[in-house]
Nucleic acid binder design. Sequence first.
DNA 1: ATGGCAGGAAGCTCCTGA
Length: 255
Amino acid sequence: MKIATWNVNSLKVRLDHLLEWLARCQPDAVCLQETKTEDSAFPAAAIEAAGYRVAYFGQKTYNGVAILARSNIESVTMGIPGFADEQKRVLAATVSGVRLVCAYVPNGQSLESDKYRYKLDWLAAFTEWLRGELVSHPLLAVLGDYNIAPADEDVHDPVAWAGQVLVSPAEREAFDKLRAVGFKDSFRLFPQPERSFTWWDYRMNAFRRKMGLRIDHILLSDALAARCTSCMVDVAMRALERPSDHAPVVAELAD
DNA sequence: ATGGCAGGAAGCTCCTGA
């Protein structure tokens, strides 16, 4: 089973890229973030024509998540239970017996921002929810845009980024705490190229200059990590004309 | 020290993202 996560930065703008990528990559399940699309405008027909079923939880302008799968999408839940949130950032579903959580973690904007406090509160609620989910769903994968670069090797210039949002100690502690619930960062289960990133700023030719961050992740429960045979970043998607600023991350699970 | 690129909504400019 091939599972993937991709922040598309507007599904409307990226639909052609998505369809081409589905045909080339042939993932069994995909978690999308930043669809920026109201449910009434979700391009379900085009995606279904490509052989995928869809579940979506979106809003206008900001946020929005979706799960695509080649087999049935079951037991769909939206949001973090018990955490009041106007922003549509979490969608969970079961596909082929695997529980998938699609997450768009808040950005935080800056350490001084109210949005940073929201990010940390959000991560605390997310982590406690997943602690329970792991008990009821041992085959659990949490895929998404975490907006956290877990370690300095995930940052093109750790000195320049030190103390900023996406790399701050409190955010990394929150990521470590989530991992400690019982997840492995699938990307780090395998040797990887140096300077592997999943996001590059649109400005300053950041992609061409390899100035990126690794902030999109596929976390796997121990039972799924034991079945994981590969994890890679599909960098080619960032090199296209009018790309998303994020590249997909793809993991393979043995049957 | 600042803005830089992109998308969306609104509407000819601003907010947000990361």
